[in-house]
């Protein structure tokens, strides 16, 4: 049985008209409109069953409503892939293709794909969420861009692994994975060395990415009034590890009440971190979580108060995504408790 595809296009490629119809809301049509015909002809063992059309301005100004309507259209349909565009360098169209592809992928878990030009603002917005083929800047590149989408879409339909970004022609999604290649590391090393010596061009296998920076938070105005919370990635937990935090590649965190404690006692708390020798921290957990000196400084009035809970997880092998998720789970609790500042101790 052949598989089924649904295509998303804007008002222009949906043959409703130009800029004057950019405000029309979403509609779904059985059969093939605009690029859907070429997709239908080129997709392998797959029929395009429907074309969805939405005006770029409508999607741009009412994205939630437009997405809800389209997901509603799709709710009772069977389809194996969802394709949007190509959007070339049309900014609103590109953002629309990205928006709807991401929503469809999140809701239905089917493969989605689109195409746009590198200058299209939709590319940077969505390249980490969906596969966006590198496309031309103007609609005259339709044949080429559509063929590129089809090539990868056919792999998705066949259940094959989609290869690396540079080889398949899509924008990198921010993921790096290992792949097996013909040449061994010695050969590659020697070639890179010779190129450096000769002053010739070479391509490093690791290009250092631009680092994500956050604005520096304003300092606490009055330390003597501040409520300070203590956090750690050093895996300090009650000895029975009640939250079953993993000792490496952690996905869990814990919140532990220290009311009335002057220090963290050995035998009551320990570290479950697998990345270092735990002896010192098990003998005296305060070497990672300095509750003892914080209590002393709290009494001396150096700062306002120590927050009633400390938060703990394990930092080793933990992905940035997991770390950021855990932080986002902890954050509202800190905010609800009016925490003014944090100390994070890492091992």
């Amino acid at each position: 049985m052949s598989k089924k595809a649904i295509i998303y296009v804007n008002q222009f490629f949906g043959q409703l008209g130009g800029e004057d119809t950019a405000g029309v809301g979403p509609s779904i049509h059985e059969g093939l409109i605009g690029p859907a015909m070429a997709y239908n002809a080129q997709l392998k063992d797959c029929d395009v069953t429907h074309t969805i059309i939405c005006g770029d301005n409508y999607m741009g100004s009412n994205p939630e409503d437009a997405v809800a309507q389209i997901l509603g259209f799709l709710e009772n349909l069977e389809f194996d892939i969802f394709i949007a565009g190509p959007a070339f360098n049309a900014g609103r169209y590109g953002v629309a293709c990205g928006t709807i592809c991401k929503a469809v992928k999140d809701r239905f878990g089917v493969p989605v794909i689109t195409s746009m030009n590198q200058e299209n603002p939709g590319m940077e917005m969505f390249r980490k969420d969906i596969i966006i083929m590198k496309g031309g800047n103007i609609a005259s590149k339709m044949r080429k861009d559509l063929a590129a989408v089809v090539k990868v879409a056919n792999k998705m339909l066949a259940g094959e692994q989609v290869g690396p970004a540079a080889e398949e022609g899509y924008f990198p999604t921010g993921r790096r994975h290992q792949v097996f290649i013909e040449e061994d590391a010695t050969t590659r090393f020697m070639r890179m060395l010779h190129a450096r010596i000769a002053g010739e061009e070479f391509v490093s296998e690791l290009i250092v990415p631009k680092l994500d920076r956050v604005p520096i938070a304003a300092p606490v105005k009055d330390l003597k009034q501040a409520k300070v919370a203590l956090l750690t990635t050093g895996g300090i937990v009650p000895v029975d590890n009640p939250d079953r935090i993993q000792s490496a590649s952690a996905t869990r965190w814990g919140k532990y009440d220290i009311t009335g404690m002057e220090r963290l006692e050995s035998g009551v708390f320990k570290t479950i971190h697998a990345g270092f020798d735990p002896a010192a921290a098990n003998a005296d957990p305060n070497v990672i979580m300095p509750i003892d000196v914080l209590r002393a400084m709290e009494k001396e009035g150096v700062f306002g108060s120590l927050h009633q809970y400390f938060y703990s997880t394990v930092g080793t092998g933990t992905t940035e995504k997991e770390a950021s998720r855990m932080a986002k789970e902890i954050l509202p609790l800190l905010q609800a408790d009016n925490v003014d500042a944090c100390i994070m101790v890492s091992t």
Binding site: P172, R176, I181, E183, A185
Partner: peptide
């Protein structure tokens, strides 16, 4: 991972 030079693996952007 054979960083001594035997590795036939590399890292690629996906």
């Amino acid at each position: 991972d054979m960083t001594v030079g035997w590795s036939h693996k590399t890292m690629k952007d996906f």
